[in-house]
Simulated scan of single mutants.
Amino acid sequence: MEFKSEQFEDVTVVYVYLKRATLAKAVKFKEFVTELIDRGSNKVIIDLTICEYIDSTFLGAMVSLLKKINSIQGDLRLVYNKEAPSLVFVITRMDKVFKIFDTLDEALDSFGIKRSKPGLDWVN
């Protein structure tokens, strides 16, 4: 499974378990998150901790999801803790569009949620 979700109070966390988030998975990812939004999730955190590379198509899918969530007065935040942000984030200035956090705990805290249990543990 490349994508999983977990609920923390009224916030849905989507874990992206891909080393390379590219065109090949962008449509499936967008469909996965759109279904969560359509079922009522309007506060979403996308955890990209595992990702080493994000291409422009995958980034485009996240922009589309951000627009969808904004249209329902929701909020989408990212966890992406690379020391050197992905070049595609910098070139497109999307690092200024998304609220990006270094850890899931920081992102949850930005919604006023303290995690009482560890998140999903990705196992290869």
Rank of each mutant, 00 (worst) to 15 (best):
F111G: 14
S56F: 09
S41Y: 04
G60H: 13
K114G: 06
E106T: 09
K96N: 04
I91F: 01
I50N: 06
D109H: 12
K114T: 14
R115P: 07
V90M: 01
Y80A: 05
D47R: 04
I113W: 10
I69N: 04
R39N: 15
G112R: 12
D121H: 14
D105A: 07
L108C: 10
F101D: 01
M94F: 07
V44F: 04
L108E: 09
E52A: 13
G60Q: 13
V90L: 01
K117C: 06
A107R: 04
L78H: 05
K96C: 00
I46A: 07
C51K: 04
I69A: 01
R93H: 02
F111L: 13
A107N: 08
S64E: 15
I72Q: 01
G60I: 08
M62E: 14
V44L: 09
G119I: 03
K43H: 15
I113F: 10
M62I: 13
L120I: 11
A84G: 00
P85T: 03
L108Y: 08
G119T: 08
I69F: 00
L108S: 10
I100F: 04
E106M: 11
D75C: 10
V44A: 06
D121V: 14
I54E: 04
F111P: 14
N81W: 05
K67L: 03
V88S: 02
N70K: 13
S116R: 15
A107W: 06
V63P: 05
K43G: 12
S86E: 01
V88K: 01
T49R: 09
F111S: 15
V63N: 11
L104H: 07
T92Y: 02
R77G: 10
L104K: 02
I91V: 03
W122N: 05
I91Y: 03
R77W: 08
I45E: 11
V79F: 05
I113V: 13
D105E: 05
I45R: 09
K96F: 02
Q73L: 06
L78N: 04
P118D: 15
R39W: 14
E52H: 10
S86V: 00
S64C: 07
I46T: 12
R93E: 07
L76P: 06
G119L: 07
K67N: 09
R115A: 14
I69G: 02
T57S: 15
G40Q: 12
V97Q: 07
A84Y: 01
K68I: 03
S86T: 00
S71M: 02
K99I: 01
L66Q: 15
G60D: 12
L65S: 11
A107H: 08
K117D: 14
G112Q: 14
I69C: 01
F89D: 01
